[in-house]
C-alpha cells in the first residue's frame, strides 16, 4: 500500500475523465459535459449573439459573460447558493476573465458570448472541471479560440521537508477529501505550451513547495488536453460520417 492515495491512485495519476460534446442539442450553440472523477459539470454556450443589454456592447470585441449555477445537491451538504454568493461570483469572474483572453473576441464585435455552467456534483477541482467543460462547449459552438484551455489541480501532501531535505512528490488532481486536507492549487494552461492563463491557490504553503506543485499541475494539464482532444476528434469524425452518409 506504500505510496498510494486514499482512492488508490499514485501521486501522478489523474482520475477518470469522461467528456462529451453536444449534450444539449436544442437550447445552446455549443454544449458539453465533463466528469472528472465524481466532479460533474454541464456547460452551455450561446453566441455570438446580440448583447442582452446595451451596457455589454463593446465596439471592437465580443463581450464574454459567464453564469455559474451550483446545484443544491452537488456537495456533501445541501447548500443553496444564490446568484449573489461571493464564491459563485468569484468563479464566474475567474472563468469569464480566463476565456476573454483566449477567445478571439475581436472577430465578433458588438456581440455577446454567454457561458452557462451547471455544477452537478463536486468532488474536488470544481474550477478545473468548469474550465475544461467550457473549452469543449466553445469548440462545439465553433467559436475560434487561440488553443485549448486545460485546467488541473495539484496538492502538496505534507508541508514539511523529510530527513534528506527533499520534498515528497505533489499529488496530481486532488479529490474532495484531499482538497480539504492538504494545500492545493488549480492551474490552467493554453494548449501544450507551459504558459499559465489562470492560477489559483487558497491555502498556506511554503514558497519552496510552490514550484513543484505548479510543475505537476502543468503536466496534468497536458494529459487533460490529450483526453479532450481525442474526444473532440472522435466526435468530429462521427459527425462527418453522419453527414456524408458513410
Amino acid at each position: 500500500m506504500e505510496g498510494l492515495r486514499n482512492d488508490g491512485r499514485r501521486w501522478n495519476e489523474l482520475r477518470r475523465i469522461h467528456c462529451q460534446l453536444s449534450t444539449s442539442s436544442t437550447n445552446a450553440d455549443g454544449s458539453s459535459y465533463i466528469e472528472q472523477g465524481f466532479t460533474k459539470v454541464l456547460c452551455n454556450v450561446t453566441g455570438p449573439a446580440e448583447p442582452s443589454s446595451r451596457q455589454k456592447v463593446k465596439q471592437d470585441a465580443a463581450t464574454v459573460t459567464c453564469e455559474v449555477y451550483f446545484a443544491a445537491f452537488s456537495g456533501t451538504d445541501r447548500i443553496k447558493r444564490g446568484r449573489n454568493d461571493k464564491k459563485v461570483q468569484e468563479l464566474q469572474t475567474a472563468i469569464q476573465k480566463t476565456f476573454a483572453s483566449v477567445i478571439l473576441t475581436h472577430l465578433f464585435s458588438r456581440s455577446e458570448i454567454t457561458i452557462s455552467i451547471h455544477i452537478l456534483s463536486q468532488d474536488g477541482g470544481t474550477l478545473a472541471a468548469c474550465i475544461n467543460a467550457t473549452t469543449l462547449a466553445l469548440i462545439d459552438a465553433g467559436i475560434p479560440l487561440k488553443d485549448y484551455v486545460c485546467a488541473c489541480t495539484s496538492g502538496q501532501s505534507t508541508s514539511i521537508f523529510d530527513n534528506e531535505g527533499s520534498t515528497p512528490d505533489p499529488w496530481l488532481d486532488v479529490n474532495y477529501l484531499e482538497e480539504s486536507d492538504i494545500p492545493s492549487l488549480t492551474v490552467a494552461t493554453v494548449g501544450e505550451t507551459e504558459k499559465i492563463v489562470a492560477l489559483s491557490m487558497e491555502n498556506k504553503v511554503r514558497i519552496e513547495m510552490l514550484e513543484g506543485m505548479i510543475a505537476v499541475g502543468i503536466s496534468g494539464c497536458a494529459k487533460v488536453k490529450g483526453i479532450m482532444d481525442a474526444e473532440v476528434r472522435r466526435y468530429g469524425k462521427t459527425r462527418l460520417e453522419a453527414a456524408t452518409g458513410e
Binding site: I196, A198, L199, S200, E202, N203, I207
Partner: peptide, 12 residues
C-alpha cells in the same frame, strides 16, 4: 509562506 495566489485570465 504563500497564503494565496490568484491569477484569473489575462495574458498567459
Amino acid at each position: 509562506e504563500v497564503c494565496q495566489i490568484s491569477k484569473s485570465g489575462g495574458v498567459a
